[in-house]
Design a binder for these strands. Structure first.
Length: 255
DNA sequence: ATGGTTGCGTGGCAA
């Protein structure tokens, strides 16, 4: 079973890239973030023609998450208890007996800002909910754009990013609470190239210079960690014309 | 270099 995550930064703009990538890589599940589409505008037909079912939770202009899968995603959930949030950032669904939790974590803008406080509160509430989900689902995958680089090795220039947004200690501690629940960053279960990143700023030729961060993650419950045989970042779509600023991350499982 | 680029939507915000 191949499970992938990709922040597409507008599915309207990126649909051709997504369809090409699905055709070339044949993931069983593809979680998307930043679709930036209302649900009535979701390209259900184009995705169906590619052989995929989908569930989605979107809004105008910002945010928006979707789960595309070869099998029907069931038991979809878009809102969690204790988080009355109009921002569409959460989508859970079960595919082939695996509970998928797709997250577009709040960016936070700047350390100390209102959005930063919202980010930390959001992560805390989502983590509490995931603790319950782990008890309900043995096979659980939490994936998406976490907007946190877990460690300095996930940052091209740790000194420049020291205690800045996406890298600050409170954000890393908030992410650490997910690890403390028993979830594993499956990318780090395998030997990886140094300077592996999943996001590069559009500005300052950051991709060409590999000035990136690894903020797109696939976290696995213990049975899924055991079943995971590979986890890679596919930088190929980042090289295309008019790319997303994020690359897809892919994990493979033998269940 | 407190810049730079992209998307949405058509001004300015978010990332």
């Amino acid at each position: 079973m191949k499970i992938a995550t990709w922040n597409v930064n507008s599915l309207k703009v990126r649909l051709p890239h997504v369809l090409d990538w699905m055709a070339a890589n044949s993931p069983d599940v593809l979680a998307l973030q930043e679709t930036k589409l209302t649900d009535d505008a979701f390209p259900v037909e184009a995705i169906a023609e590619a052989g995929y079912r989908c569930v989605y939770s979107g809004q105008k202009t910002y945010n928006g998450v979707a789960v595309l899968a070869k099998s029907e995603p069931v038991d979809p959930l878009t809102d969690i208890e204790g988080l009355d949030d109009p921002q569409r950032r959460i989508l859970a669904a079960t595919v082939d007996g695996v509970r998928i939790i797709n997250l577009y974590v709040v960016n936070g803008s700047e350390v100390g800002s209102e959005k930063y406080a919202y980010k930390l509160a959001w992560m805390d509430k989502v983590t509490t909910w995931i603790a319950g989900e782990l008890k309900r689902h043995e096979r659980l995958v939490v994936l998406g754009d976490f907007n946190v680089a877990p460690e300095d090795q996930d940052v091209h220039d740790p000194e420049a990013w020291h205690e800045r947004i996406l890298c600050s200690t409170p954000e890393r501690e908030a992410l650490g609470k997910l690890f403390a629940l028993g979830l594993s960053d499956c990318f780090r279960k395998f030997e990886q190239p140094e300077q592996s990143f999943s996001w590069w700023d559009y500005r300052a030729a950051a991709f060409r210079r590999n000035m990136g961060l690894r903020i797109d993650l696939i976290l696995t419950s213990p049975p899924m960690t055991e079943a995971c045989t590979a986890c890679t970042i596919d930088v190929a779509p980042r090289r295309l014309e008019r790319p997303s600023d994020h690359a897809p991350v892919v994990a493979e499982f033998v269940l």
